[in-house]
Design a protein around this nucleic acid. Structure first.
Length: 819
RNA sequence: GCGGAUGUGGCGAAAUUGGCAAACGCACUAGACUUAGGAUCUAGCGGGCAACCUUGGGGGUUCAAGUCCCUUCAUCCGCACCA
């Protein structure tokens, strides 16, 4: 065989050394300057494909976690381009809000400067990874051109009654000096700074997210995503079906003094109610001050509760506290019997109605509380439990018999439940009701670095929205932007900015001095990429229609119950006001695993255990870094970072490079390689589509092994191989393609495999005897049982056919001989 | 407490519908080439001298189980007094 390499050597001199630094730099510069990966709006022939990676949080350097998500999406984007798609693969920076501001404060640099520098830094670092972003679409949430539209969306929310300001009890982070949403709190601590979260009364902007619960659940159903992530979202939204029941309230003299609504999912236990509990913040308390005989004691308890941090309340679940409300009784609408009323902080004011009917015989929490306060219990459903309640799971599972429940006594609980519901509806004391755990979204922060609210407060006109033409309302540059101890926004000190004229009546007015949370800008950014520089609209409707929903969205699983739910909410809203053409923002969401350090701890920007990707790139090159990290484990799994094994990757790349020395001038696929090559095409296509880079890399290695053993690769085979490998290792393959084929690899298309070359004509088939492996023989594919048995005999395998009871033969798979 | 996952060599990990467990790589061992080897190449590499045994443990279904069912243990993650 004539080695093509001899010809090549004549043409271009001997094969050069693999100098990854020069090669990678060359291609990275070329891709940027030639705009190789520009997405074309309304491409005349190619179908669109939208790959999105969560944009960078501008609070530090690129870290390993970013590579975990960006590299597979980059591979997918490159693969889809080869497949003939017009790919949109954009990037940007999430630069407003607490993370960026806290990082800026820490490094003692003004947030605006910190963010501008940070943006440049992460963009240039992602260029060093060879990521194929469309750089012309880069956005940054703290850029006025961008946040103009964040403010615009807020205005639409306000105009459509989805935003309201209300004084309420909210999570307040003692570290960040600002209110937080429920989504920002973990175990009573701030998710950003780890500070203790307490409850504070404050005037807060809320977005009516709760109203969207059912639509969000619908989004969850319609997204392609790992089931456990969907569960996490459904769990967060927390739909539960039950009844809302009204209890009348009486004073000591049995005079009606009001009523209280309670929510229950266990109406079947209505005859077992022995007390009612209100949340300490429940408005009835202040309404009934005159009737409450121990109001001092009650006030004291309420005060105590307010002082307790959420963390204390949660860590003290076993030890229930409460206070009886003397002088007020609740009347069970089914029995007309009166039961005492308590307040206790285990009842949450923001769930259901903030009041519960307590059934100590059938609810463990009620049981513990009743025991502590010596409240009697009445068992109404059969079941055995010593020193505990007979709970729902038990009695429903056994469909137990009703007790002490008037006309329902003796029925099974499932039948009784339905009849009790009917009775409640008939006597008019209750209706079926669905409750959601998810709350409205507290949407302001008392911090400097965020989108200013486009509203003013006017003594005459109240809350007045700015006119759209006056957007963006630019955040003023100030010197003193640190949060203060009172938790007021730093903007309140900027008098000439705060004081303004009412856009409606022209009178003196003042601006909202809180800013929007960091989640605001990220709740719609994927839409902006469709039309990132449009000064007149958040994005042109036709362009939004063209680019459609994100086909594959990659990013961290920690955002599943926050960012992704906010994204659903805003997209639903924007769809309803006709601003966007789809209700579902994302078709498929892939949650990436974490990178762990050698202690098994998460490696992230905030921890000190991080290994910088730049350090690895510098030492081994971008292609090697990309391959190594993804060879360590599957995309959705957590993987421990290690340098161990990176030599396997570098020697693989050396072998790839040395294919130049083995290429023949044959422009067809050789017989020896036809099956392995076709299988490789299939494997790589499927693996990239599923973001399984680890097994794809293994397949490339196996292929190379075979090529090395055979000592040659044809031109055609090498061409295919380089295209297949390009999405994972773009630099080396681009360079080799140019050297050998004198063409640009990005102009090529993805090789197709032929079904008929996936299976070889002869196969190895294991022979089992009584289910145990005995020997492996080689037969023709599709051989019949008789032919296989014949072959076994020919192979001198010691089986006496008269002893054989049964033969189980799975064609082309296995033969099991039962003796 | 509720929900979810994971458990496979010395290590990272593979394994369509149940069908040859350990692909691919690291580490390790031996050999070759070398002045040299942290380079390269070749071979070996779950355990056991063997028959055989082996996917956290125990049980089951099946001709056949890492995969399905029951049970149990361990680790990790999410939610957490949600009425």
């Amino acid at each position: 065989m004539i080695l093509f390499v001899e010809y090549l050597h004549e043409m271009r001199g001997v094969m050069k050394e693999y100098l990854f630094k020069d090669i990678e730099k060359k291609w990275q510069e070329k891709w940027v300057s030639e705009k190789t990966f520009k997405a074309i709006d309304f491409h005349p022939t190619k179908p669109k494909y939208y790959v999105l990676y969560e944009f960078f949080n501008i609070s530090g350097n690129l870290h390993m976690g970013h590579l975990k998500g960006t590299v597979p999406s980059d591979a997918l984007a490159r693969y889809k381009r080869f497949c003939g798609y017009n790919v949109l693969f954009p990037i940007g920076g999430d630069a407003f809000g607490l993370p960026a501001e806290n990082a800026a404060i820490k490094s003692k640099i003004k947030p605006s400067k910190f963010v501008a520098d940070g943006m440049q830094k992460v963009l240039s670092q992602s260029k060093m990874l060879g990521l194929s972003f469309d750089w012309d679409r880069t956005i940054c949430t703290s850029d006025p051109e961008y946040y103009k539209w964040t403010q615009w969306i807020f205005l639409q929310l306000l105009k459509n009654g989805k935003a309201y300001k209300k004084t309420g009890h909210v999570n307040f982070c003692t570290g960040c000096q600002t209110i937080l949403s429920n989504e920002d709190c973990r175990n009573g601590k701030c998710d950003r700074c780890g500070g203790i979260v307490i409850q504070k009364e404050r005037a807060v902007w809320f977005l009516k997210m709760k109203e969207y619960s059912e639509k969000l659940l619908n989004n969850v159903d319609n997204i392609e995503m790992a089931e456990h992530l969907k569960d996490a979202q459904r769990n967060w939204i927390g739909k539960s079906e039950g009844m809302q029941i009204t209890f009348n309230l009486q004073d000591e003299n049995e005079k009606n003094v009001g009523k209280v609504d309670i929510f229950t999912t266990c109406i079947e236990t209505i005859y077992g109610v022995t007390y009612v509990v209100l949340a300490p913040e429940h408005p009835l308390i202040s309404q009934l001050r005159e009737q409450i005989k121990n109001i001092k004691e009650v006030d004291k308890y309420i005060e105590q509760t307010a002082k307790r941090s959420e963390f204390d309340r949660l860590s003290d679940q076993k030890n229930k506290t409460g206070c009886v409300v003397e002088g007020v009784f609740a009347i069970n609408p089914f029995t007309q019997k009166k039961v005492p009323v308590y307040i206790a902080d285990f009842v949450l004011n923001n769930y259901g109605t903030g009041a519960v009917m307590a059934v100590p015989a059938h609810d463990q929490r009620d049981y513990e509380f009743a025991k502590k306060f010596n409240i009697p219990l009445v068992q109404v459903i059969q079941g055995i439990c010593e020193n505990c309640a007979v709970e729902k799971t038990q009695y429903l599972e056994n469909n137990s018999t009703m007790l002490n429940s008037e006309e329902f006594t003796g029925l099974d609980v499932k039948t009784a439940k339905n009849l009790i519901i009917q009775k409640a509806e008939k006597i008019g004391c209750g209706t079926k009701k669905i409750n959601y755990k998810m709350q409205d979204w507290p949407f302001n922060r008392q911090r400097y670095w965020g989108e200013p609210f486009p509203v003013v407060f006017c003594d005459k006109c109240g809350v007045v929205a700015l006119e759209e033409k006056d957007l963006p309302l630019v955040l003023p540059e100030v010197d003193d932007y640190l949060p203060n101890a009172e938790g007021d926004s730093p903007l309140s000190k900027v008098k000439d900015w705060v004081n303004c004229k009412c856009p409606k009546c022209g009178a003196d007015a003042y601006r909202e001095t809180d800013t929007m949370p960091n989640w605001a800008g990220s709740s719609w950014y994927w839409l902006r990429y469709a039309d990132p520089h449009n000064p007149n609209k958040l994005a042109d409707y036709e362009k939004l229609k063209y680019w459609g929903s994100v086909d594959c969205y990659t990013g961290g699983t920690e955002h599943i119950t926050r960012h992704v739910l906010y994204a659903f909410f805003w997209q639903n809203f924007l769809y309803e006001i006709g601003a966007v053409p789809n209700r579902n923002p994302f078709i498929r969401k892939m949650g990436s695993g974490l990178i762990l350090d050698d202690q098994g701890k998460k490696m992230s920007k905030s921890s000190t255990n991080g290994v910088s990707p730049l350090e690895v790139i510098d030492k081994y090159g971008a292609d090697a870094t990309r391959l190594h990290l993804h060879f360590l484990g599957a995309y959705e799994d957590n993987v421990p970072w290690t340098y161990q094994g990176i030599t396997g990757i570098t020697s693989f790349l050396e072998k790839v490079w040395s294919l130049q020395d083995m290429v023949t001038n044959d422009n067809s696929i050789s017989k020896n390689h036809i099956y392995v090559l076709n299988r490789l095409i299939k494997k790589i296509s499927e693996d990239i589509e599923a973001l399984r880079l680890n097994t794809a890399i293994a397949a490339f290695m196996s292929f190379i092994k075979q090529i090395k053993a055979d000592g040659y690769i044809t031109m055609k085979e090498l061409q295919y191989f380089l295209i297949l490998l390009n999405p994972l290792a773009p630099h080396i393959t681009s360079e080799m393609y140019e050297i050998i084929f004198n063409k640009q690899i990005t102009d090529e298309s993805w090789p197709k495999y032929d079904e008929k070359y996936l299976l070889e004509d002869t196969i190895n088939i294991p022979i089992q005897i009584n289910g145990k492996l005995y020997k492996v023989i080689t037969i023709n594919r599709g051989a019949s049982q008789d032919e296989v048995v014949e072959e076994i005999k020919n192979n001198n395998i010691d089986i006496k056919m008269e002893e054989v009871k049964k033969i189980i033969y799975v064609k082309d798979k296995i033969i099991n001989i039962i003796k």
